[in-house]
Design a binder for these strands. Structure first.
Lengths: 340, 340
DNA sequence: CTTGGCACTCGATTCCAGTGAGTGCCAGGT
DNA sequence: ACCTGGCACTCACTGGAATCGAGTGCCAAG
C-alpha cells in the first residue's frame, strides 16, 4: 500500500512544523498552519496511516505526532525541496574563506564557518594524505645520524617524520637519497606510491643501499601504513541549544566526538565530491550517535574527493538548509584548494 | 578577627564533604562523618562565623553550607594536603606517554591522559614557538618561484610556510640562502631571532640580496609576528558529569573552550615550570568561566617553561588530587621532551 | 566556651483535581 | 469511496494544599 500525495504532504508539514516548533504537532495545528484543503479529521485519518507505516509516532497517547527516523528519511529522499542559500549566506562564505593564508587556515575557517552557518557541530577532515599526490619530498639532515623527512602534497599539506639511521651519513648520501626518492615518488598519488618504494632499492648504487633501506621502511609507514588523518571540529556548544533533543544528556555525543576513529568513519568515507550523504538517527553506525543525524559530503579539487566535511546535529534538524550549506561550503573549499 | 584551628578544620571538612557528595553539608552530617570532637551545635556556631567571613554560604535558608570561591581559595592555599598519586596512576602516566613517536603524539597522549586522570577537561599547549630555539631551517624549492620554509625547533615542533618570490631563483641561490639563514639563526631562541634577521641582509653578497629581502620578511612573520600557538583539549564530555555544577547550562563553558584566545590566556601565561596556578571561579578573567576553576602549570625541558597545560572543571573539584595529577604529568612531559 | 533543647524556616515531595490539546471512532453527507 | 462534524476518552501538564524533614538560630544550663 502506498501513500497518496496528500499523506506525503501531511508528512512534510509535520516535519516542517516539528523542526521549527520543537513540539509534537497535532491535527488541528496542522490544518490551521497549512493550506491542506481538508479538515482536521481527515488529517487525523492520514496521520493514523502514517503512524501505522512507521513514519511518525506519538510520544504519549494524548500528544501530537513526531517524525520517526523513517519519516525523516522519506522526507529527505522525496519531500524536501532544495533551499537555496540567501545572498547574505553566500557572501558570508566568500568573506570568511577568502584571505586564508595556508591550509591550516583554510580548514580552521571552514569548520567555524560551517558551525556558524548551520548552527550545528561542524566537522572538517584535512585533505586525506592517501588521496593526495606527492609534490616534493625533502630530506633534512639533523646531526649526523638523524634526518627529518618532510612530505609536501599538492594540497599544501605538510607531514614530517624524524628518522634515526644506524650509521652516519654525509651530504652526498643525503643528496643521492633525495633525488632518488623524488624521482620515484614525486607526482604520484600517495596510495600509489607504496608500490614504487621497492623499486628504489633496485635502482640505486650500492653505497646508498643501506641508508635507503632504513629510509624506505619509514617512507612506507609514512605514506601507507600510517596515513594519519586529521579532523577538526567546531560548534560543540550548539549541542546544548535544545537539551530536549538528547534523551539522557549530550554526554555520549561529546564522547563520540572525541574519538578520531568515529569521526573518520562518519566523515572520511567519501568517494566523489558532490555525493552528499545523510545518516539519520539509527542509520548511524555509532551507538552513541543514534540520536543524531550526520550530513557529510566529500570535497576535492577535481572529480575525486580529497576528504570529507559535514555537520552533526539532532535528528530534528533543518535538513534542506543544512544540506545546502554543507554542499555550498564543500564546493567553495574545493575550488579554493584547486586554485592554490 | 582570625579563624581558630577548629574553624579551619570545619572548613576543610565542608570542602571535602561537598566535593565528594555534591550536596550542601549540614552540621549534623559533619559531626557524624568527621571526628571533630565537638557537637553539632558547636559546629553550627563555627559555621555561622565562617559564613559571616564569606568562606561558606547557604543556597537557601534551610539547607546546609557550600564553600564560596573564597572558601576554596583558603582551602587550596592553607588547608589542602598534597595527595600523592597512587602507584597505579604513576604507572598509567608512564605507560601512556612512553612510546610516543613524535611531538604530535606526545601532546595528544598527554591531553587524553590528563583528562582521564582528573576526569576533567584537559588542555595542553604545544611547546611555544617563541620560547623554543631554532634547530634548523630548511628551504625547499617548489617550482622556480616558490619555496617552502620549514622551521624545526629543538622541541621537535615543525612549522612550515610557503613563499612566493617575485623572480626566479636557481639552486645556487637556494643553497646560499639556506646557509645564510641557518648560520644566523640556528641555535637561537625564536624570540631572540628577530633581531638577527636584519643582519642577514648586510652580510650577504649582492646577488642574494633581492631574494633574501623577500625571505627575511616572511621569516620575520614566521618567527615573531605570528608565533601561532596550538592548543588541544580533551575530555569535554566530563563537563556533563554533574549537570548541577553549572547554573544554566554548560553552554557558555563550551563556547569559551572553543576560543583559542581564551585558552591561551588561561594556559599560555606561564613563567617557569613547577609554578602551579589555581584560578577559582570568579578569579577567572573570562566571564563564561566564572563557574569553573582552572589548574594550570608550565612545563619545560629545563628551568624555563615552554608552554602550559592543565585542566578545567567545576569549582567543586578535588583540588589536591587534580593538582597532583597536573603537576606529575607536567613533569613527566617535560622530561620526555628534554630527552628527545 | 560548649552543649542539648526547641521553635522555626523553607525547599522538596506527594497528592489531587482541573484543564485542554489531541486522539479514535462513528454516523451522516457529498 | 471519501470527507467531515460530533463526541467520548486519554493523559500530560499545571497549580495549590498538605506534609516532610534537613537544617538553622537562639537560648539557657553545664
Amino acid at each position: 500500500m502506498s501513500l497518496d500525495d496528500r499523506k506525503l504532504e501531511v508528512l512534510r508539514a509535520i516535519v516542517g512544523d516539528f523542526v521549527s516548533t520543537e513540539e509534537p504537532v497535532g491535527s488541528k495545528a496542522l490544518a490551521d498552519r497549512h493550506q491542506l484543503g481538508v479538515s482536521p479529521a481527515t488529517i487525523r485519518n492520514d496521520m493514523a496511516v502514517l503512524e501505522e507505516e512507521g513514519y511518525i509516532t506519538q510520544p504519549h497517547t494524548s500528544a501530537g505526532r513526531v517524525p520517526t527516523d523513517k519519516g525523516y528519511r522519506l522526507f529527505v529522499d522525496r519531500l524536501s525541496t532544495v533551499k537555496p542559500l540567501s545572498t547574505a549566506e553566500k557572501r558570508a562564505i566568500a568573506q570568511f574563506l577568502d584571505g586564508a593564508a595556508d591550509l591550516d587556515d583554510v580548514v580552521n575557517r571552514t569548520v567555524r564557518l560551517l558551525a556558524q552557518l548551520t548552527r550545528q557541530v561542524a566537522v572538517v577532515q584535512y585533505p586525506s594524505l592517501s588521496r593526495s599526490t606527492v609534490r616534493h619530498l625533502e630530506l633534512v639532515p639533523v646531526g649526523v645520524t638523524r634526518m627529518l623527512i618532510v612530505l609536501i602534497t599538492d594540497t599544501g599539506r605538510v607531514e614530517q617524520r624524524m628518522v634515526e639511521f644506524p650509521t652516519e651519513f654525509d651530504d652526498e648520501v643525503v643528496t643521492g637519497l633525495r633525488s632518488a626518492v623524488n624521482g620515484a615518488l614525486a607526482g604520484r598519488a600517495l596510495s600509489d606510491a607504496a608500490g614504487h618504494i621497492d623499486e628504489l632499492l633496485g635502482q640505486i648504487g650500492p653505497l646508498l643501499r643501506p641508508p635507503m633501506n632504513t629510509l624506505s621502511t619509514v617512507l612506507l609507514e609514512m605514506l601507507v601504513e600510517r596515513p594519519e588523518e586529521r579532523i577538526v571540529l567546531a560548534g560543540t556548544a550548539n549541542l546544548t541549544r535544545s537539551a530536549l533533543d538528547f534523551p539522557g544528556t549530550i554526554r555520549p555525543v561529546l564522547e563520540a566526538l572525541e574519538e578520531q576513529m568515529v569521526l573518520l568513519r562518519l566523515f572520511g568515507e567519501v568517494e566523489s565530491p558532490s555525493t552528499l550523504r545523510v545518516r539519520i538517527g539509527g542509520e548511524n553506525p555509532v551507538e552513541n550517535l543514534r540520536t543524531t543525524s550526520v550530513v557529510s559530503v566529500g570535497y576535492g579539487t577535481g572529480t575525486s574527493a580529497l576528504a570529507g566535511l559535514g555537520v552533526l546535529g539532532p535528528t530534528r534538524m533543518d535538513y534542506p538548509g543544512t544540506i545546502s550549506a554543507v554542499r555550498a561550503v564543500a564546493r567553495y573549499v574545493g575550488d579554493l584548494l584547486a586554485g592554490s
